[in-house]
Design a protein around this nucleic acid. Structure first.
Lengths: 222, 222
DNA sequence: GGCGTAAGTCAACACTTGTTCACAAGCGAT
DNA sequence: ATCGCTTGTGAACAAGTGTTGACTTACGCC
């Protein structure tokens, strides 16, 4: 050490132990994106600084900033899929399922605030690779939901294609809900109003399903 | 022109005449955001270069990069409001209005591709000021739509509050449609499928409206 | 033990960045 | 013609950027 005249006051956390720099970098990126801007606006050096790590250490764990971002996205959805599987929603009656699902999802979003904030920001503003990754995961969720719908009698008169259209509408509504939950600050009780609105919208959609006729609209384009 | 000894090989367009640098800067920003990344990822200098203007000239027209972004957002929505007013949708019968509205909107989005691409990207990734501006404009649109709904007999049994909830769902669906239109490349005929799906979803929603019952306590202003 | 490899550090590089300042050019009004 | 104001220009600055290479430290494994 030549001189300790420099003042690394910006070091946010106690220097990470040997193997945990990777986690520290991911967490640092999430924190910066959440509190400052979007991913493309924060530099490699700032992430390293926030993680309490020297810039070059970054390359020991990620090839790129892109690689970091993609890892974060993968983690988010891996964890989300896990949650949704455990919930086993398709074994519930349709009645009451809406409220339960909305609450489950909202709770999960709040618990993983930083991760979801990251995904929401990068869904449209991120790199092509990131945008595609997110898009693909959402398509997967939509397909799974459509498959779940098929198990209910209430959807027996709906064509495969229309099931996907409906699932798509539902997914979009839920995504919008989470975007809004992330927009109000965490200890604001306003969330309930947001959830109530989303619930209403979903119930409205399912009411429409009762009157929907697939056969008519399907191939009438002769 | 004093001397042409300088070789600005990067100059993208013929040097703008005296007063039109401001427009050139806005257009340049739109182009860069559309083809490269999001707004916070492109520098003042790059915008100036793309506009065929020296960096310092930027300050003659905008205080900030932020100011440029806000101007672009304002322009987008000013123009959009204008279009929607001209359309006078509320004077049409509900029947067929869905298809017409969707087509009108989709057409408009395609015509202003760069502007909308900008707004979509900055809606969540932008500065606080930008995000708020966009959010406020969307709230305005939602309110206007709810007010339009109130004019139709089909909505007479719906409470004021529920009207807004429904309008919100509709607006979100249309926003999602435009996001998707912007994601496929311009000369791809895939747009029709996207529009068809959105149409279906909107018709589904309006079917639900037929069965919807606002609780008596809510129907204060009936 | 000692060796190999992964993880962390430091200094240095060639650039790009935002912003400033002083100055020149255009142009309408007096 | 000359003032005043807007618009455009070039040089310069300090600060921050990604990435490199060579070096040290730690740890698991034989």
């Amino acid at each position: 050490m030549s001189r300790d005249a420099k003042k690394p006051a910006a070091r946010q956390r106690s220097a990470p132990r040997r193997g945990e720099a990777r986690e520290a970098l991911m967490q640092a990126a999430l924190e910066l994106v959440a509190t400052e801007a979007n991913f493309s606006a924060i530099s490699l050096r700032r992430i390293a600084r926030q993680a309490g790590v020297v810039p070059t250490a970054f390359y020991r764990h990620f090839e790129d900033l892109d690689a970091l971002g993609l890892t974060l996205i993968e983690d988010t959805f891996r964890s989300l899929r896990h949650i949704l599987n455990d919930a086993a929603l398709s074994s519930m009656p349709l009645k009451g399922l809406v409220r339960y699902s909305v609450e489950l999802f909202a709770h999960y979003v709040r618990d993983n605030r930083l991760l979801f904030q990251f995904v929401v920001k990068e869904r449209f503003a991120g790199t092509v690779a990131m945008r595609e990754a997110i898009h693909n995961e959402i398509v997967l969720l939509t397909n799974a939901l459509a498959a779940d719908f098929a198990r209910f009698d209430e959807f027996s008169h709906i064509s495969q294609d229309d099931l996907r259209t409906i699932a798509d509408l539902v997914v979009n509504t839920v995504i919008t809900l989470s975007e809004r939950i992330l927009d109000v600050d965490p200890d604001n009780a306003e969330d309930d109003a947001l959830m109530l609105r989303a619930e209403k919208q979903l119930r409205l959609i399912f009411m429409g399903v009762g009157r929907w006729e697939s056969s008519r609209t399907e191939r009438s384009h002769a």
